[in-house]
Design a protein around this nucleic acid. Structure first.
Lengths: 115, 115
DNA sequence: GTCTTGATTTGATGTCCGTCTATATAGCCG
DNA sequence: CGGCTATATAGACGGACATCAAATCAAGAC
């Protein structure tokens, strides 16, 4: 990632054109967010008590099968948006605020960006 | 958009679970961002002098054909992320910071959200 | 050990998406 | 008008994706 060179982890899109390499990586994350089920999963996890939720908490609110939920959780995890850990019988998921914050910063257009 | 009812244009994902309707709408926008070419287009437009760029400025930096660029611009426009206008021979595109800011706010996890 | 519950993996299927070429539309100029 | 440049649309094709049912793995309970 070229951003790391200058320490700009949060350069908004407007400051300078995104290069090919960064674009591919960022697109990977947005792709993980580009599904209603995954967005709701992320939201459920983030808003769950303690900041984490087990899969058993996540299958109820959806009309899709449990393996499909598992699949979506895997996509979120592989995109780096959530972490997971098995604790006994259950597997818990939590969001990674750093990663979300990075995407958030990318989209945040600071006042005066175009001037 | 149900958010408008309460005036919460910027409720982060962590505050409360996203409902199905909102999730579908937000996913539509993230889907538009979930492609390297479109991300770079958005970045090129946003960082271009005057905050807008004509298509002729946007076809050069890519390896894909001009119709493909046109297709991607259409996706960005239909997602509401950019606006466009024909001025004589050329068509100009600009970003809509409001919309990006809304997505940014959605991802921004306020300090203390998970604690 | 075996049964049960929780979660992931596998394989199949239908749909969506990114890309191309070819064609069409829009505006300018001589 | 005719020709030229800029952009958009149409149609086709290959690959990626969301979903499901079935099978598998993991951990406890009996």
């Amino acid at each position: 990632m070229s951003n790391q060179v200058t320490g700009e982890c949060c350069t908004p899109l407007a400051r300078e054109p995104l290069n090919q390499t960064d674009a591919v990586e960022v697109a990977r994350m947005f792709k993980a967010l580009a599904d209603p089920v995954r967005l709701r999963l992320l939201s459920l996890i983030a808003s769950h008590e303690g900041g984490e939720a087990c899969v058993c908490d996540l299958t109820g609110p959806f009309d899709v099968s449990q393996p499909t939920i598992s699949h979506h959780l895997k996509v979120l995890r592989e995109a780096g948006l959530v972490g997971s850990e098995r604790r006994g019988t259950w597997v818990y998921y939590w969001v990674r605020p750093e990663v979300l914050a990075r995407l958030s910063a990318l989209l945040g257009v600071p006042a005066g960006a175009g001037t």
